[in-house]
Structures are given as C-alpha cells and as structure tokens.
Design a binder for these strands. Structure first.
Lengths: 99, 99
DNA sequence: TCCAAGCTTGGCATTTTTGCCAAGTAATGA
DNA sequence: TCATTACTTGGCAAAAATGCCAAGCTTGGA
C-alpha cells in the first residue's frame, strides 16, 4: 500500500526543508516565475537559486519550461496549500519552540 | 496573514525530513508507543531514537507523557495523514527521481 | 559571426546534521 | 538502600548540506 520508499518521501520533504526553497515554492504558489526574478526575491547567488530549483524539480514539487533565454518555473502539485496549512497549524499550536 | 516565520516552518519540515523520524511518525500515526519499542522497530541506538523524538517534540509533531518508567509518545496533530498523502501524490507523479 | 543575457554545472571550503559511546537521571522492585 | 529498567544528555568524529566563485552552455539580437 505504501507506494513510495521512505527515502523517496524524505527526498521530497528535504526539498522544502530550507528557508530559501520554502520561500521559493510560496512565491511560485501565486504565480510562475523565472530564475533571476526568484533570485531578486530570495537573495543569494544566482547559481545557488538555480541549484535549489533543480533540487525541487527532481523531488517533484516544481516543473520548468524554457521560453527564449528565460526558464519559467511553476508548481507541479495542487496540494501545497493544504500541506502548508498543516505546518501552520502545528506551528501555532506549539509556539514555544526554540526559534 | 503568515503567522509563522519561515525558520519556524523549516524547523517543522526538517523534523520529518529524515528516514528514521519519518518512520517513527508513521508508526505513531497508528498508535502511541514508548521509546524502546520505537527503537526495536526503526533500529539505531536508543539515544539516537530519543534525540529524534526530542527534535520532533520541539517541532510540534508529537507529544509525550511519562508512565512509570516508560515515556509514551503520540502524534500531536491531526493533519499528518493529509500531509503524507500530499507527499505520496508528488512521488507517484514523478517516479523518475534519483532515489 | 560576435556579444550579451540568462541559466546550469563543477569545484570546494564552510557549516550543519547525524549517530555512537559514555555518563547522568528518575522510577520501580527486591 | 541497592540494583535494574527506561530514558535523556554531553561530547565528538564522520557524513551531508550549503553557498560562493569560476567556467560552461543556449538563445537572441546586433
């Protein structure tokens, strides 16, 4: 019944478990975006942002499409909002963390 | 509107982004369990399992209660099943990963 | 053809995470 | 009280993740 290996699920989870990557999917949740625009919003080197995007694409969270010189990234799943709501609910019920 | 900081959300995500920890919450999803029983199921040193549990408790995924010499851990959220279904759906739609 | 814009990839030093061992604490029973 | 069970915590070496720089690769325009 468990179609996916634990390691595959962990790969998917790790892909979002990083501040810049989480911000990127939240940006992409409202609209598709190209790499340099994402870099402008989250900061860091362009190559770093590109590597984050590759990692999330391999995990399955996002897709990309080349348009001229630009590469447009967009969400590849419908469940991100529900996924993030779950995290929000855990966070608000346990405000006494170590952050 | 975004009640939680990005870092707090990342902490919550990181807490599940590990093979042993993901297996532990999946075990706890069916029933509460004590530490040595969890160790018997996921392997590794008892101290390692204990540290995993502490980390997930601080994140907010699980709670614990002391009963005599044993400490019983259990899920602290209702949304884990939906959360895991989202991961499953991403994994099954993108089977060509590097795992 | 040549150049520049927009990305990706390689390499590598720094930082973070992991997991074992040893030591410590709390509860229970002899 | 003493020993045992059930955990937790400290410490540290090994492994993994991160992020910058440099170098590459396409695409489109001059």
């Amino acid at each position: 019944m468990n179609a996916l290996s634990t390691d595959r699920k962990v790969q998917i989870l790790k892909a979002l478990a990083h501040p810049a990557r989480l911000e990127i999917v939240q940006i992409l949740a409202s609209a598709p975006c190209c790499v340099s625009e994402l870099q402008a919003r989250v900061g860091g080197d362009l190559s770093t942002v590109s590597k984050h995007l590759t990692l999330m694409r391999k995990a399955g969270w996002i897709d990309c499409e080349k348009r001229g010189q630009q590469v447009h990234y967009r969400l590849a799943c419908d469940c991100l909002p529900a996924f993030l709501r779950c995290i929000e609910s855990i966070g608000s019920e346990h405000p006494d963390c170590d952050c």
